[in-house]
Amino acid sequence: MIDHPEKSEQELIELCQKKDGHAFDRLMRHYRIPLFHFLVRSCGDKELAEDLFQDTLIKVWRFLPGYKGRSAFSSWLFSVAHNVVRDALRRQKVRANISFRETVPDQAMAHTPADEVVADETRQLVEQALQALPEKQRQVFLLRQHSGMAFKEIAKVTGEPLNTVLSHMRYAVAKLKKCLRDDDLII
């Protein structure tokens, strides 16, 4: 089995375009966590996010031969995921119904029991605030935070003018701020 431990991202992409499954594993392993977090926060449901993760991987594997490298691979990957989420939300009319009790945080901000309480409260507040956002505001915010895409790229992916995208970001952060401030988590 060839594992390609030493390949660069560009080399892995080229191997994936030739349908090398091991290279695809190496490539996706790097992005699986931010991608899954983006999906969970987008749909508000871990099980649904797992299905969307599956759909995203199928689409990425299928359409990678058409990727020409005009944008960063991460941008391309998250634009595929964004479309998968958008289609799923349209199809199923899924609205935020967070059920994170079963989830196991893999990125903890807590170090002591007291910290854990604060972290859990913050997580709940943030998730509720996110789910209360209009879909476009939520998608812009999540794309920026999880994919690290530039706002100009987000504008291309969402098909909206840059100023509209910046407004979405501004309102999303303002609503998050209000939620956190109402609960005295920020001054």
């Binding site: 871990k46 196991v104 901000m109 988590l185």
Partner: peptide
């Protein structure tokens, strides 16, 4: 910064492998 520090759900390795296998 607060948002970035909020813990998130984990993707099981087995689930990831399944998804990868099905995609290929």
């Amino acid at each position: 910064t607060i948002y970035d520090k909020v813990p998130n759900a984990a993707l099981d390795e087995a689930r990831y492998q399944d998804a990868l296998h099905i995609a290929v």
